[in-house]
Every structure is written in C-alpha cells, then in structure tokens.
C-alpha cells in the first residue's frame, strides 16, 4: 500500500474551490426551485406524517 505522487504539480489549483462552489450553488438552486414550485398539498401531507399516526 503506497501512495505515489503521479503528477509533479497541478496548474490552476485555485479552480478547485471555484468548481465545488459552482456545483453546490447549482444543486442548491435546483432544490430551491423544486421547493418553491412543489405541490403544496403534497408537502402538507408529508409534514403531518408524524402527527397523523393512529395514536
């Protein structure tokens, strides 16, 4: 079990945080859009799942 350094160096390592930020913002935007446009009755039903047990 050895870890070998395959590359001497990498150019533009600063892109890594940027790329991850873009992935996150895109995902976040999609979920937010869904939540805003989603069916209200559906959320209402889900919301009441723990309460609407028999007891």
């Amino acid at each position: 079990m050895k870890f070998i350094n395959y590359l001497e160096s990498i150019t533009g390592i600063g892109m890594y945080p940027l790329v991850s930020l873009i992935i996150f913002v895109a995902f976040f935007a999609l979920v937010t859009l869904y939540v805003i446009n989603g069916n209200k009755e559906h959320f209402e039903k889900l919301r009441n799942l723990p309460i609407n047990e028999n007891k």
Binding site: F27, F28, V31, V35, F43, L46, P50, I51
Partner: peptide, 22 residues
C-alpha cells in the same frame, strides 16, 4: 410528536437537508 404540531416548514427541511449534507 411531543409538541403535537407538525414541523414549521417542510420546504425548509428539504433545503436544509441537502445543503447540510453537501
């Protein structure tokens, strides 16, 4: 369950879940 009231916002819980684990 204990308070006998549904959670404040189910929409918030969805966004909260994905953002948190991400």
């Amino acid at each position: 369950k204990i308070a006998q009231r549904p959670v404040y916002s189910y929409r918030l819980s969805i966004v909260h879940f994905w953002a948190l684990i991400f």
